[in-house]
Design a protein around this nucleic acid. Structure first.
Lengths: 190, 190, 190, 190
DNA sequence: TATGAATGAGGGTTCATTCAT
DNA sequence: GATGAATGAACCCTCATTCAT
């Protein structure tokens, strides 16, 4: 139990720093200092800064989507459209409450990388979100479920940053309406 | 005339290097070497590498969109939907032919930054694309033309990279169909 | 019996690595990994990498020279000159067959160190080679047997590397002729 | 004239440090500190520590051998044997007076490397020592002048260290006698 | 304008050694 | 005896930026 505490400390220190100063501006020295750990210890657990980031992205993304699924199951939502919308709404709300995550993801413009990872994670056959989506997609005769999921994720993740960071003048409510429309439209393309 | 040639040489050398090696991996030394100019000269024309990048992005983006407008005017396309689709098709085709530009924009994952700049540029009140869009938007009673333009640009620019780079399994033709649908849908949201 | 197996494993793993990668490029981690032993165990048996190297050099050198003596005794060689020549020929042949030893000794340019050790070892009063040499030297009225032995060893060991490693263009046969001449000449200096 | 002063300062600082602490124990930081120069400046003039060492070895070796040649020409020595002996005596005397050079060369056991370089340098077709040796060798019908030169250099350089460093109990005078004998013998091998 | 030598903070990484278990 | 996680000093090297010429 004590065993992994150093790794956990490194992860959470890095998370704090990445969300605060951004990925590039965070040095390994910063991370080990914050974790009160020697520099060499970093290399005991991670190959380099990028591997740590990857682990963080995977953890955090799965956390959010899994929470979303858990919440979804508590609801009584039957239509596939609405299920998908519920999940993305959940994610949007989550990011609204904890916008520092976006800093982590995007401050150093790593959106592209993040997307790639995200897609890989969500399409990991064993994730609940993927299962749910593919099952629903089949029942709705979607021609290419992976592609549709990809498009939705791309759309939301590419716009949410600008919206939450107030780079574009729109409130969350209106933004969500847009997203709902897009999701519905996308699920119609067969 | 000799006077400006150094700046131009720096810009075009940087463009070549950025599209080849990516932004982060290109050093100022690389740029000045390629431009056959002294290191100090760089700082005579640009504050730093990022300002040069910015200038490059603005130039290139305006170039593409303006070409698109010129082409559009040669056509006889009356419906607003179709005009917008024509322009984005033009851009997609352009990028398909010259995918090195994507390297420049995204190899170092600068998608986020690029979007921001792009939006600013296109919304620059004096650009033709903006004028055309706003005029058409009004005639079609779009509630929030800027937002719609933003959403379309975000959608296309966030997905085109993955499509062209074969990160996602879809051919250009099918991808365009998706984009057309999305654009039509977006222009319906009022 | 199980007790010493770890030390032996460390020695033979180190020998393999030193002859393969060279001394400097072999880390203690490499050695303990190859010996399937924990890092701390290394320090149970050796002060540091240099002490291990020393032990290895002593072992290996004694092994070769003792083999040479054993072989010599099987022959019927009476003249002192010829006895010495026989021994050095034996060593040269040995190294020719197993040139990896030279890698171990010289890859990291440790020739100097090696010589020092070698001289100490061979002059160790209890070694057969030393006894044989001193006895023969006296019978031949050599003024300074230690010095002569030293000179011969230095000459052979400083040239053999270049010869075997093909740094100098000479075949072993011709090289041996040279060595024979030098040995004879040295044994004449009184 | 001021132009190269930094490089010269780096070279002479490095020389002092190499002869004092040895090559391996001298860090680039040590060198630049001693030269009162910034770290980056080092890399302006040398690829790495090894290239600097090489430059130093070449400079110093040529310096000594050229001095020897100059001195030789002042003498009236006609026999080839005696010419060669004069030169090696000169080198031995030089090293006796300035034994720090041996530290530089051998403290980190780089004898092997040094020899290789030395041979290359001296066999560089344009060096006086090489010319003198080959010319004399031909006049004396030496079968393989390069090999003989190599053998002599190897012999002297491998023994001089131990002699000067008092690792072996012999005075310089006697040592020189040995060397003279060996040189004469080697020049007889045809 | 133009130069390019000089700067030096800062980067990531390695590895011999220690020590609590 | 044996372990291996933890240490942290030390390493080499990069490169944006400055400034005297």
């Amino acid at each position: 139990m004590e065993e992994t505490s150093k790794k956990i400390r490194l992860l959470s220190s890095a998370y704090k720093l990445f969300t605060t100063k951004g990925f590039n501006k965070t040095t390994i020295q910063d991370i080990v200092d914050a974790a009160r750990v020697a520099k060499g210890t970093f290399y005991l657990y991670f190959e380099d800064k990028y591997k740590l980031q990857e682990e963080l992205i995977i953890n955090k993304s799965l956390e959010i989507f899994n929470e979303a699924i858990v919440e979804l199951e508590k609801q009584n939502i039957n239509k596939f459209d609405d299920q998908v919308i519920f999940i993305f709404d959940y994610v949007i709300d989550y990011l609204e409450k904890e916008p520092s995550i976006l800093n982590f993801i995007s401050k150093d413009l790593s959106l592209g990388l993040y997307h790639e990872k995200l897609i890989n994670i969500l399409e990991g056959k064993e994730t609940k979100i993927y299962d749910l989506f593919i099952k629903g997609a089949k029942e709705n005769n979607l021609k290419n479920p992976e592609l549709t999921l990809f498009m939705i994720i791309e759309f939301v993740s590419s716009t949410i940053y600008s919206v939450l960071m107030k780079k574009i003048d729109i409130n969350i409510k209106d933004y969500k309406k847009y997203v709902h429309e897009i999701i519905k439209d996308m699920l119609k393309i067969k």
